[in-house]
Nucleic acid binder design. Structure first.
Lengths: 146, 146
DNA sequence: TTAATTTAGTTGTCACACTAATAATTGCTA
DNA sequence: TAGCAATTATTAGTGTGACAACTAAATTAA
């Protein structure tokens, strides 16, 4: 394997990830969604599996716990989510969408899906399979030990 | 196209990009490189095409100008880069590696290449071609207008 | 049952991304 | 050539990511 050839992959990966995020963020702003991409990804999960603890939500969303705590603080300030006591574990808190939060997800979901699709123009279903397989392989290659 | 199927791609993209960055960062720290991934990507470019302006370097590195200014501040504080006046445009500054910066790149380059290769275990040259093509297509799909 | 360890969540610090605003300079044009 | 627009770099503000350290509560061990 020629190492030189591969030296740019992290650049491509990084800039594409940033572009996807940025494109979605600008689209959100244009439509006055008043929410960031990361905040959206959190309430989307809560909408599907409501309620859950910080820890569970961090795992599902792929964010670490400190990051999740901060995003939750913002979402609570916006009135989209609330923290309630865990029924059996006093260390833990359960997170659930407020009614306002549910309405938000309902209203925005179809528009978000449209925005998301833009990235896949000129690409095939097969490309999508490659994409998922390759990126997940990279992820697990780096996951194991370190 | 089934929209649901595609809804997860940004999650996969984002978490893979973060994992690649984090893996490299941990590897750097273990070897006492005393530099971040983003700082490395900057001095690597400067090593190949020395000197250039903030604007040129921002474009080549895929970072925006405010981000580049901050990274440069850090690199200058570390003594790896210096700013010098542009010969013809008094608005602009040229950036160049110090001798220490050049030595740093020389010393670290082979080790960085090794770290980078880890991601491509169990993947083929063909996968790499798919990777580059798909991600660059996504990038340009979102690039055009917005 | 006390003591040690583990777990859930938070806070602090540093680095980076993006937007908007600003200062200094340059270049265009009327 | 005077005035205005565009360009280069910086700064400020907000949000996010990684990591370390901390508090409080729960679990395990002695």
């Amino acid at each position: 394997m020629q190492k030189e050839k591969f030296s740019q992959y992290s650049f491509i990966l990084d800039r594409t990830a940033r572009k996807v995020k940025q494109y979605a963020q600008v689209s959100f702003a244009q439509r006055d969604f008043d929410i960031t991409i990361d905040q959206w990804s959190i309430i989307k999960i809560l909408f599907q599996e409501n309620p859950m603890t910080h820890k569970e939500l961090a795992e599902l969303s792929g964010k670490d716990q400190p990051t999740l705590t901060r995003i939750m603080d913002i979402l609570i300030k916006k009135g989209l989510v609330r923290r309630v006591e865990h029924p059996t574990d006093r260390r833990a808190l359960q997170l659930q969408l407020t009614d306002e939060g549910k309405i938000k997800v309902d209203n925005l979901s179809p528009l978000v899906a449209e925005v998301r699709m833009k990235a896949w123009e000129n690409l095939s279903e097969e490309d999508f399979e490659h994409f998922v397989r390759i990126l997940n392989t990279i992820y697990s290659n780096l996951e194991k030990e370190n």
